Every structure is written in C-alpha cells, then in structure tokens.
Amino acid sequence: MAAPFRISSLLSRPSSFARTSRQLQTTSIKRWAVSSSRPIAQSLANTETTSSTAHEALPPQAYKPPTAGLLSHLPRSWVPYAELIRLQSPAGTYYLFLPCLFSTLLAAPLTNPIVPPSTVLYTSGLFFTGALIMRGAGCTVNDLWDRNLDPHVARTRLRPIARGAISVNQAIPYLGVQLFAGLALLLQFPFACFYYATPSLLFVASYPLAKRVTNYPQAVLGLTFSWGAMLGPPALGIDLLSHTPALVSAACLYGSCVAWTVVYDMIYAYQDIKDDAKAGIKSIALAQEKNAKAFLSAVSALQVGLLAGAGIAVGAGPLYFVGVCGGATATLGYMIRKVNLKSVEDCAGWFRRGAWFTGGAISLGLFGEYLAQYLGLCEEDKEQGAKRT
C-alpha cells in the first residue's frame, strides 16, 4: 500500500522546473489580465488550478458540461471520469480494436478445422471490450504525464486532470481499476495470450514520454496500438512460435498497422500544430510540415506492402489482395488527396472517418477471404485450376 502513496506523492509534487514555470506563467497572466481589463486577482486564481510550463498560458476558458450524447445522461460526478477515458470520442477505441480484428480474421483460416463464424464473432467481441478498457487506461496514463502540457493546448486544456476536475490522487486508483479490469478480460482468452499481451504495457506507459524526446511519437503510438495484430493467432489457439507462416504473417500485419497509425495520427496531430510549436511539444506534423502528403503517401505504400506480405505468408487467395490491399490503397489514396491539413475540422473529421473507411475496407477484404476459405471456395478454385493444367 505504501508504493501507490509514494507514486502519487511524486506525481503531485511540483518539480523545480514546474515551480519556475509557474512564476513565468504568473507574469504572463498578469500581462494578459491587464490587456483584457480583467482583475489580476481573478487571472491569478485561474493559474492555481492549471498545470504550468515555461510557455505562455492560453487565456482561461470556461468548462461546459455535456448536454448531448452518452455523457449527458451520466450522473454529474461521473462525467470527468468518463471524459478521462474519452468515452465521448470512440475513434481511438476503434483504432485499438481494428488490429485485433484484422489478426483474428487473418488467423481464422489457419485453424484446423477452420473455426466457425460464431467463434470469430465471440473472439472479436472480447477484443472490442478489451480495446475499450485499455484505451481508457492509456488515456489516463497519457493525461497524468501531460498534466503540465495539456493546459497550453487549445484542444486539451479542458481535459479533467488539466482543468482540475480530477486530481492525481484520484486518477491513480482509477487507473488501477482499469488495469485490473483489463487483466480480468485477458484471462478470458487462452492463457498463452497473457504472455503475448503483457509486453504491450511497456509501450502504453512509455508513449506519453515519446513526444518529449522525438519528433515521431506516432511511431511509438503505433507500436502500442498495433499490438493486437499479434494476438489473433494465440486467441484462436495457434502458437506463433511453432507456426512459422502465422508468425511471419502476424509480424507483417503488425508492421502494417504501425505504419497505418503513423498515417492517421499524423493527420490527427495537425489539429495541434500551432499550439505544439508554441508549447515546445515534439510532433511529426512539425517535422514533416513541408512535405506532409508525400510522407503520408510513402508510409501508406509501406502499409499496403506489408499487408501484401501478410497475405503471401499464409498463402492467401486473390480475394485477399483485391479486397485487403486494393481496398487499403484506394481508401488511403483518397483520404490523403482530400484531407486539408490546414483545417482543424477537416483533420479531425478524417481521423474519425479513417477508422472505418480504411479499417472497414481491410476488414471486409479479410472477412471475404475467411468466408471463401471456410466455405471451401478456394479449394474448388485450386482443383479447377489443376484440371485445366
């Protein structure tokens, strides 16, 4: 019991950097208050509830409780905790779930006998529940690390920890509950999944630090969000270490999903490019600002190439390459051509749509390949081809 107390004490204690930053921020707020004819005392009071950095803070903005959607129906005291796990923004959950779905559909034809659709559906349902839980845990970890940065970015300044609705000492036990829930769900899978899934926690904890040391934190996010690509085979009883085609296919799929994460999260990052530059936050959007669409196209080509490699490794049929690779190429190309990277609204819209635009195309292609294998259509094609030769 002593360890959580020490961790929370360290997280809640301001560092010397933060104390110096607060002094600098107080000076900037005084200047802002004078220029806007507001009482200095009121402006200083706002800074007491805001984490600080060495950069000039954004002017105070009032928080408005949700009046529509799921959160509007929750008790008022629950809303900050629902916001902390981004319950109102499900796109992140979809992006975490889709690699799990991809790997389940890709692995299903490798089982002997091929598992029925009911098993695929049940396994996918477990993965979706796990994605919902672990995405929330990742958001909690991210907001704990970023509590001194979020108040200085317009899009994140009203997050629960940043605005003071949830304290660090409240967020840590909440995180513990989420992790225990994730563990309980993980134990519903074959026990081998426990060993394959556990290493992903290292990436969950380290991603928020990546933006402090590299211009490409999206690559670290990709390593985190794509881990489900490795879990489909063991979830269906396939041992990756003894099944070389499944291992190679899963590795290619994992790499493809990492590349996809870089694409969609780079578009997402363009929402904050101005605030990131002011706050000193590293970002792929800043690093590739001059050749953004060329970079997106190159990474998308890598994604499609690795998808093709995943199919080749397991001997997939033509339906796979037309549906999966062709669908991914068409949707990614269209999105990159249409997205306006200078528009915050357009970037946000394409980030949300991209989950089921590109992800949906890949899923449909994989499901079509699975059904063809399950119904024996591919074997019929092979037999007819053999007779013709």
Rank of each mutant, 00 (worst) to 15 (best):
A68D: 13
Y270V: 03
S52I: 06
W32I: 08
Q23C: 14
G368Q: 10
Y320R: 09
T111H: 13
P117N: 11
C257T: 11
L319A: 06
L253G: 02
K382S: 08
A82L: 02
A310T: 05
L101V: 04
L375C: 09
Y95P: 07
G315I: 03
A386I: 10
T49K: 12
Y195A: 10
I29Q: 15
L341Q: 06
A313K: 06
L364A: 15
V339M: 11
H152P: 01
H55G: 04
F189Y: 08
H55V: 13
F128K: 01
A41P: 10
V79I: 07
L209T: 03
A154I: 00
G311S: 02
A229T: 02
K293N: 10
G385C: 06
I336P: 08
Q384K: 14
G237R: 13
P14R: 05
L341M: 05
S36Y: 00
L84S: 04
G222A: 14
R31K: 03
L144W: 05
H243K: 01
A82I: 04
G309N: 12
A330N: 13
S12W: 01
C378V: 09
Y370W: 00
A82S: 01
P90A: 08
A251Y: 03
S12D: 08
A269Q: 01
K64T: 13
P318L: 11
T104H: 05
T20V: 14
K382R: 13
T261N: 04
A251L: 13
K30M: 15
P318T: 05
Y268S: 06
S89T: 10
V322A: 12
Y196P: 00
G311F: 01
T47A: 12
F367Y: 07
A45Y: 06
T244S: 06
N340H: 11
L71S: 02
W260F: 10
A2C: 02
A277R: 14
T20N: 11
K282I: 04
Q271N: 00
W145G: 14
V258N: 04
L87F: 08
P60L: 05
R38N: 12
L179V: 07
A330E: 15
V220L: 14
P318S: 09
R31L: 08
T67R: 11
L175M: 03
L332N: 15
I267K: 05
A277E: 15
L186V: 02
A316G: 00
L158N: 09
I172C: 04
D143N: 14
T329I: 06
H243C: 07
A192I: 03
I273P: 00
T20I: 13
G255W: 12
A298I: 13
P80I: 07
L105C: 06
G309Y: 08
G349S: 10
V204Y: 08
A386R: 12
A294H: 11
L341V: 12
S118P: 11
I85C: 08
A2K: 05
I238C: 00
V304R: 14
N291L: 11
S226V: 13
S124D: 08
M134F: 12
S118F: 11
C347I: 00
L364K: 09
L185V: 07
L98C: 02
T119F: 07
W227M: 04
K293P: 06
S77F: 13
